Simulated assay, not measured.
Amino acid sequence: MPQMAPMSWLFLFSMFSIALILFTIINYFFTIYQPISSSEETSLPKISLNWKW
């Protein structure tokens, strides 16, 4: 689309930049982290791999 005016490109760039920044802020502040309790850590099986070369 080379016929578009430079102001239109600037508007599109600013719109997508603001959308990207808002999306990353929303993902950063609204994620709910579930901390791993110590009982879940001990229940995981530990597999030791003995490589015989």
Results as ranks from 00 to 15, higher is better:
Pro2Tyr: 01
Pro2Cys: 06
Gln3Cys: 15
Met4Leu: 09
Ala5Tyr: 09
Ala5Pro: 10
Pro6Ile: 13
Ser8Thr: 15
Trp9Glu: 02
Leu10Asn: 07
Phe11Ile: 09
Leu12Met: 12
Leu12Ala: 06
Leu12Val: 09
Leu12Lys: 12
Leu12Thr: 03
Phe13Asp: 01
Ser14Trp: 05
Ser14Ala: 14
Ser14Glu: 14
Met15Ser: 05
Met15Gly: 02
Phe16Met: 03
Phe16Gly: 00
Ser17Lys: 03
Ser17Pro: 01
Ser17Thr: 06
Ile18Leu: 00
Leu20Gln: 03
Leu20Phe: 03
Ile21Arg: 02
Ile21Asp: 00
Ile21Leu: 11
Ile21His: 06
Leu22Asp: 10
Phe23Ile: 10
Phe23Met: 07
Phe23Asn: 09
Phe23Ser: 08
Ile25Lys: 08
Ile25Glu: 03
Ile25Ala: 07
Ile26Cys: 10
Asn27Val: 12
Asn27Leu: 07
Tyr28Lys: 15
Phe29Met: 08
Phe29Ala: 05
Phe30Asp: 01
Thr31Val: 10
Thr31Tyr: 15
Thr31Phe: 02
Ile32Gly: 11
Ile32Asp: 02
Tyr33Val: 14
Gln34Ser: 14
Gln34Ile: 13
Gln34Thr: 09
Gln34Glu: 04
Pro35Glu: 10
Ser37Leu: 12
Ser37Phe: 14
Ser38Ile: 13
Ser39Tyr: 07
Ser39Cys: 06
Glu40Phe: 03
Glu41Lys: 03
Thr42Trp: 07
Ser43Met: 12
Ser43Phe: 11
Leu44Asp: 13
Leu44Tyr: 07
Pro45Ser: 06
Lys46Cys: 02
Lys46Asp: 09
Ile47Asp: 02
Ile47Lys: 04
Ile47Arg: 01
Ile47Glu: 01
Leu49Ala: 07
Leu49Ser: 02
Asn50Ile: 15
Asn50Gln: 11
Asn50Met: 14
Trp51Ser: 06
Trp51Glu: 01
Trp51Leu: 11
